[in-house]
Design a protein around this nucleic acid. Sequence first.
DNA 1: TTGTATGCGTTATCAT
DNA 2: ATGATAACGCATACAA
Lengths: 345, 345
Amino acid sequence: MTPTNPRPTMDDVARIAGVSKKTISRFINNSPDVSARMRARVEAAIAQLGFVPNAQARALALRRSFLVALVHNGSDRGIRDAVETGMVRAMEGGELALVLCPLRHEEAAGLRAFLDRHSPAGVVLLPPLAERDDLAEVCRAAGTRCIRLGQEQSEAAPAHDERAAMAELVRWLLDNGHRRIGLIAGPEESRAARQRTLGYQDALSARGLDRGPWLVAPGDNSFASGMEAACLLLELSPRPTAIVACNDEMAAGALAAAAGMRIAVPDQLSVAGFDDTPLAAMTVPPLASVHVPWDRMGYAAVMHLSSEMQPLSVEETGFDASPVLRASVAPIGEVALAQAAAMPR
Amino acid sequence: MTPTNPRPTMDDVARIAGVSKKTISRFINNSPDVSARMRARVEAAIAQLGFVPNAQARALALRRSFLVALVHNGSDRGIRDAVETGMVRAMEGGELALVLCPLRHEEAAGLRAFLDRHSPAGVVLLPPLAERDDLAEVCRAAGTRCIRLGQEQSEAAPAHDERAAMAELVRWLLDNGHRRIGLIAGPEESRAARQRTLGYQDALSARGLDRGPWLVAPGDNSFASGMEAACLLLELSPRPTAIVACNDEMAAGALAAAAGMRIAVPDQLSVAGFDDTPLAAMTVPPLASVHVPWDRMGYAAVMHLSSEMQPLSVEETGFDASPVLRASVAPIGEVALAQAAAMPR
DNA sequence: TTGTATGCGTTATCAT
DNA sequence: ATGATAACGCATACAA
């Protein structure tokens, strides 16, 4: 009972099964030309020994590892968790494993070094890094397949129409009587954030509300920035009756700001977020949000990387995002109407 | 400019430098016996070619990969994020990478297969899996070093004194006038949760409050269970003036329950959590919690695994956990006192 | 359909 | 201090 119990190799399996290594190899890679009898014998031998193919050896021979790298910059924990979940689900029972590649300083050189060192079978770029062309270029140069999550829908990018989804959310608010709707925007560099802002403007324009200044306050996707931005918006007069944020964390910040100013949600103010992360269900009141199927997008990304087909199919690139209404939003009430009127200045 | 640019190998470097492969190998592993002149020549050749050692090949020869596996069961996202952060910080610039090993069904066979397949250099078991002796045994049998996070402090486990920390938190509540303090417990199987419950009882006993029934409601670390448990506690009469939960998510659930019952926090009820995850700063009001340095524990775990020293040093095993007071707790006020008195039944 | 020889890029053994 | 050669475990020719 030594602690170093040498693990069985293909040779052992071959010996037990009374066949050659190559047959075992064929079995492992489910080659079509293995007779049923052989298959059974090999299967039995593998089960008997508890044989598990060594990923390192396979990787060396195949010149590609069994790792899929999730590249992120540490922001947006909610999105990352969802994507991770989906990726892991896609890898369940398979031979792939999920390896994290944090790019704190967001430098391409870091990704390059990571690829050189670990040569993952594929790379998934999380927003906002998914927007970085230089990172995609590094992958291309290294010959590593790369999926940019949440980018414009293309053959290499599962994506959703965030612009339309945001418009739909804002439209709901308009349909329910809200007229002054504030937006807490995301980082300007972020395409995703810009799309969401555009969706907000789309909805207002469609109602002919595009003359006045947009009630847009800048944020950086953090709770603190959401709180700050909400404070700015809530000091306006007349005060907005609704605030939509470009992600859930900032929306949570808006809830905190409202509480600090003794503004009741949703009675005096509706608040909504984006992404529908777990946080949205844990606030008081629960946060309306736009559900983005990040987990399914992660799942699709891995399925694509593990298969050999080149272009992503439509089912793998088209994803629906749609508003989830929760208690943080409500039709505009008399209280809020009165409030708005009482602030004529 | 083909996308498949074959990367230089040790052979190439050896040829350029005019030495043997073995010397390159020695250089890479900073073997002591390489002359300064050799070192310089090799270094130059490596730089010239942009050579990066192939991790798969090294792994095959060394019989261990350059991965550190973080084994978890999907629960307690907050803790996992913190540990991940610390681990990644410890691996920064090094050759190790973090690979996720989710054990959804918590079966030892799953871990065994993962170890056989990917042969990680080390394994970090996250609570509550860290408590599973069978998982540790699987690692031992596979000859893989394993660190059990948050277990009893030992030479293989960075840990903190959660019992004392919880007692300290409850003591603060007692010192501030609270007498009826409810506890939302964690899963009974979890040693950590039991320790925290014990800490709660310690503090009450020390004040001679150990005669009455403990105000303990069961939870499973989820937001929903925290909400349920809080509802139970808040229906008691006299009502508790404070509720402490065994993690932040349940505490957030308690905040939601209080809001649903129109009980003001902290005026009529103090609420506190445990672990001090990011969530604690994003609730309304911000959640008092016991800070546990999960990130530093993850850091220590990786530092230990990457070094060769056998036992963990004291600095790596002793961690302080201590209460962080935020607006969700307050000295018991007249309102709450009156409230409690008005419910004599 | 199955077996044999060889290579993948690195490290370990043993020699010099 | 440095080098030749054999592993490491599996996959790919190519042959049978």
